[in-house]
């Protein structure tokens, strides 16, 4: 997990509150403050879209599980996929969505491992479907920096 918004911003506060020793007060502290600024920018992006991105990712995984549950997996995996596919996010805080996301991701890893072990064209199609979901999720979670010139 990447640092949460609250961890990032509390970290910024702690960084600025800690008085540096004399030898760290110049160039090093200036660099540190620059990174604190970047973290604040990233935290702002994450605050804006973080909940929506997690909600969408969780829903995409549940849809996938619903489609894939009948794939002939072990009874335990099949039951797990069916159960998770019926779920719904009730807690819409980022931490609540992350808890659900962790459970769904564990099941996704198990499903993907099973799919990769299966032979044939159907397996390849499922692999492509899963990897596309992963890539789309990573695209959605990406955070962008402003264009910064070299100094």
């Amino acid at each position: 997990m990447t640092p949460t918004i609250s961890e990032a911003l509390v970290g910024n506060f702690m960084t600025l509150m800690e008085p540096p020793p004399p030898e760290s007060a110049g160039e090093f502290m200036a660099g540190k403050i620059g990174v604190v600024g970047l973290i604040s920018l990233l935290a702002a992006e994450e605050a804006e879209k973080g909940a929506a991105v997690r909600f969408a990712e969780n829903r995409a995984m549940r849809t996938l599980f619903s489609e894939a549950a009948a794939g002939g997996w072990t009874p335990a995996l099949t039951a797990r996929l069916k159960e998770l596919a019926r779920g719904e996010d009730q807690d819409l805080t980022i931490s609540g969505l992350d808890r659900a996301n962790a459970e769904l991701r564990h099941a996704l890893i198990a499903l993907q491992t099973a799919v990769e072990a299966a032979p044939g064209a159907a397996s390849l199609a499922r692999q492509r479907r899963i990897v596309r979901l992963l890539r789309e999720g990573a695209d959605a979670r990406r955070l962008d920096l402003p264009p910064m010139p070299a100094r």
Binding site: T2, V10, N12, T15, K32, V35, L42, A138, L145
Partner: peptide, 17 residues
Amino acid sequence: GGVDPVLGFTGLYCTRR
């Protein structure tokens, strides 16, 4: 405890990238 911002920045930005 979040006091090294380089760890925070790379943990946030670079992980996602």
